[in-house]
Design a protein around this nucleic acid. Structure first.
Lengths: 188, 188
DNA sequence: GATTTGATTCTATATCTATCGAAACGAATC
DNA sequence: GATTCGTTTCGATAGATATAGAATCAAATC
């Protein structure tokens, strides 16, 4: 799970009054589900739901003890997230911005990529397709290479399922070429 | 606004993917509403709504600049909240509980401790066992710690010969936790 | 003053989620 | 094995909220 989603589930898990109180209670000692239900004036099923959210964010964990499930706070996870809020550096990584990309390219990318950065449609115009190609090359092939076809396909999976079109595009548009034996690819 | 609600609005304000990205973007530089709308692919009115939430939590603030409203991140507010997550002490204040020996506890202690204050039997009920644990913690571990396992065993000898059960109970019930190296114990 | 531009407010809607009750489940007890 | 007890899962519902669009507002430009 990328950094962004990790932080998001973290915040979502704490964005509820009852769950905040649960964390507060668990900061004192471990509780069972029914104990929490009693204190919070909720049904056990509701508390269970809250605990599953907190546990999904890694904030609490249960140790099964015969009949009971003892829920305890994981203070380390809390600290880890808190620390990432203290550095603006980490915050910046939440929203990487493409410096150096010129306005036209940015516009094209915004049009053809969705929020996850996946290809929404194939640009018909050659010029726009090349913007996509350069973006892909810069994003997933920043190392020196060479790469096998399998390797290339694997990396491009993040962009689109139609990896072949992109791979062929790299060749056709002169951004990559094959080595002598034709088995491996390298940047031109 | 009490501590609890402050933290709640803080978490609610960040419990949204778009708002997290806004914070990430503002960590780079200040943005206007329409700039953000463009980048996030949202209407200006929606962005305005998000910014009002963030501003309600004190995370961003706008400086009016002629035509534009320049929104900037308030890193101090972020740090302040992050810091409160780092101390379990502050977390406990989220859910104050009434310490003090209540009648029920006294009854349990009378049942399971003999005249010398030694454990007559192991309570089967979890709740009663915890009464014993809290009593032991309060009686023999009033100092700050940390303690080695040997030290803990020594002190608990006054309570019972089966020191291991109690020591394990401290951990399982969230009253103590181990330090990083796992060699020493400290109150949670 | 009229117009334009950027931002906010208001209203409506579609999605999400907190909550409950019922059912299912697993472990301990009878 | 049947039962009980604590927990989780499922289905339904009511309340919250993210979003868009229209209307409003404020400042700058004409």
């Amino acid at each position: 799970m990328p950094d962004h989603d990790l932080l998001l589930t973290f915040f979502k898990s704490l964005a509820d009054a009852k769950r905040l109180r649960i964390v507060g209670l668990l900061a004192h000692r471990a509780y069972t589900v029914e104990e929490l239900a009693e204190v919070l004036d909720l049904r056990a099923s509701t508390v269970s739901h809250h605990l599953s959210k907190l546990s999904g964010a890694g904030l609490v964990s249960a140790t099964v003890q015969g009949h009971y499930h003892l829920y305890a706070l994981d203070t380390d996870a809390l600290e880890a997230h808190a620390r990432s809020l203290l550095s603006t550096g980490e915050l910046r990584e939440l929203a990487p911005i493409d410096e150096g990309v010129d306005p036209y390219d940015r516009k094209v990318l915004a049009t053809f990529l969705d929020e996850e950065g996946r290809l929404k449609a194939h640009p018909m115009k050659r010029k726009k397709f090349e913007v996509i190609l350069r973006h892909a090359l810069h994003t997933w092939f920043d190392d020196a290479g060479p790469w096998t076809e399998i390797e290339i396909n694997g990396r491009l999976k993040a962009l689109t399922d139609d990896v072949a079109s992109i791979r062929r595009g790299f060749i056709d548009h002169g951004l990559m070429c094959r080595d002598k034996r034709g088995t491996e690819y390298v940047k031109s």
